[in-house]
Amino acid sequence: MSADPIRLGLVGVGVIARSQHLPAIAASPRFDLIGAADRKGDLDGVPTRTSLADLLDVVPDIQAVSLCTPPAPRFTDARLALSAGRHLMLEKPPGATLAEVRALAEQAEKAGLTLFATWHSRHAAGVEPARAWLADKTIRRVHIEWREDVRVWHPGQDWIFAPGGLGVFDPGINALSIVTCILPVAFLLRAARLHFPENRQTPILADLAFETVDGAPVTAVFDFLQTGDQTWSIRVETDGGVLTLTNGGADLFIDGEQQSGPAHHVVLGGEYAALYDRFADLIAAGRSDVDLTPLSHVADAFMLGERVAAPAFHF
């Protein structure tokens, strides 16, 4: 690989792209954003087209694509990028179904291209130290509280309540991505209650009961109707003490004593800077990273979950 920056195209210039991806790309010496595609708007400073196909025609020098569109319609663009010989990075969740992401992984492998299914919350400041501390511990109990206000984080975004939009699992999958990373043992879903607004197709509240393969309970509450302070916390009781992650994994406590640096909000750009570094490393090494475990847990919840009627929801 050349030391020159990787020439990047960005597809989907919405809220997450503007708040996270664009600052991370601008700060990275390893990428050069040379084009964008979005159905609704332009991106100042680079050629922008309404489709990835048009963008690749106009800017054929693009080497890698970062795909930030919602998961339901993403497969077509993802397949196109790989078919055109471009490395591909997928915003979380990596796709609308497990099967389509597996198909993309197979396509990338056959083409010798990098496919990176990202989980940004795994790069929060407290996550790797938490994983290291838990590595030799026996897990006794885990509880996850992931409560946020959908009107704040997804204002007017009806796609999140449409089929494939995941509803409250859109943030909840961040928690699952952390827990599947830090626990030294696998866990399986045993029961779920999913609360669907009467006018929506995805849940707004989820109560989940998992169990580790060793029999320890792992419970979770995902809530999209939280107002005021937002809650993103994970508590792990072990034979060696209690570990707590707060602020979406940014802050780590052991037996109540803070281990990481000063508290900072989960949406700071450090996580996305780490994602782009990882993407560049994977391209340089000729490797892919496609961990579907968090999405598998969500799929299991939809398969096993009891559907509970909830009041209609309107933005």
Rank of each mutant, 00 (worst) to 15 (best):
T244P: 02
T238A: 06
G256R: 14
E237C: 05
L243H: 12
G270R: 01
T246V: 15
D223K: 08
D214C: 03
G248H: 04
L208G: 00
A250D: 12
G261R: 06
G269R: 01
Q259E: 08
G240N: 05
T227A: 10
L245S: 00
G248N: 03
V213K: 12
F253E: 13
Q259N: 02
G248V: 03
G270A: 03
L208W: 08
D223V: 04
H265K: 05
A250K: 15
G269K: 00
G269I: 03
F222S: 00
G228V: 11
I234W: 10
G240E: 11
G269A: 04
F222T: 00
P217D: 13
F222G: 00
F253C: 02
D255R: 06
F210I: 07
V213R: 13
A263K: 11
D239V: 09
V266E: 10
L208F: 08
G256F: 15
G249R: 02
L252E: 01
G269Y: 00
A216V: 11
P262E: 15
G215N: 14
H264K: 08
T231C: 11
S260W: 04
D255E: 05
T227F: 02
F222I: 00
T246W: 07
D255S: 09
L243S: 01
T202H: 06
H264P: 00
V221T: 12
D239W: 11
Q230T: 06
N247P: 01
V242T: 15
A206R: 11
A220F: 12
T227C: 07
G270C: 01
W232I: 08
P262Q: 12
V266Q: 10
A220L: 12
R235S: 15
L225I: 07
V236Q: 09
A209D: 14
N247G: 03
G269T: 06
P203K: 12
T238M: 06
D223W: 09
Q259H: 06
D214Q: 14
G241N: 09
